[in-house]
């Protein structure tokens, strides 16, 4: 949230500084290097699984075509099979009938995987405060970045993905056993 960032708060900082000796031992030079490599490769080749469920999908397509060409960042191809994707973009209204399918697609994606909830409907149900709509896709699957808008501009989505990259940059994956 750029307004918060301007006021000196960055909500995307996930981890604080580590202080304990164990923590520092765990993060020795070898592991930090492996970690850095892993993170570098992951965040520069996020292949999205487009879950276009309603009108937001149109703006998602807009973000991927020539005007805002997301391939510039390495989000190269839409992968319509979940096995080859590592970023799920939930764009649109998740109805109760669609919910099991969203969950199953998420389960079929291979680790590591991330989720972006795009648009008011996917974030929190949006304008549809109704029995037929899941009130936020985070009731089904964990969400990493929320992109507000109805629909968000393609730029907003690209900004969200860049913030996701920032988040991946801070992840600590490699461990001794």
């Amino acid at each position: 949230m750029i307004r918060l960032e301007k006021k000196g708060r960055n909500p995307f900082i996930v981890y604080g500084e580590e202080k304990s000796i164990e923590e520092q031992l765990r993060r020795n030079i070898l592991l930090t290097t492996v970690d850095a490599m892993l993170k570098w490769s992951r965040r520069n080749s996020l292949w999205p699984l487009p879950l276009g469920l309603a009108c937001c999908a149109i703006e998602m397509m807009g973000a991927f075509f020539a005007r805002y060409d997301m391939a510039r960042f390495g989000f190269e191809v839409f992968r319509f099979s979940p096995r080859q994707a590592d970023l799920m973009i939930v764009a649109g209204t998740v109805t109760r009938k669609m919910a099991p399918i969203v969950k199953r697609l998420y389960d079929q994606m291979s680790e590591p995987k991330w989720v972006i909830a795009m648009g008011a409907c996917a974030m929190a149900g949006g304008p549809y405060n109704s029995y037929a709509v899941v009130q936020g896709v985070d009731n089904l699957i964990p969400v990493d970045v929320y992109v507000p808008g109805c629909p968000p501009r393609p730029e907003s989505l690209i900004y969200g993905i860049m913030k996701l990259r920032e988040k991946i940059k801070q992840e600590r994956e490699a461990k001794i056993l």
Partner: peptide, 11 residues
């Protein structure tokens, strides 16, 4: 329009 946030609380 750059409004992305990491948690639902920040929304």
């Amino acid at each position: 329009y750059e409004l992305a946030v990491p948690t639902r609380k920040d929304l």
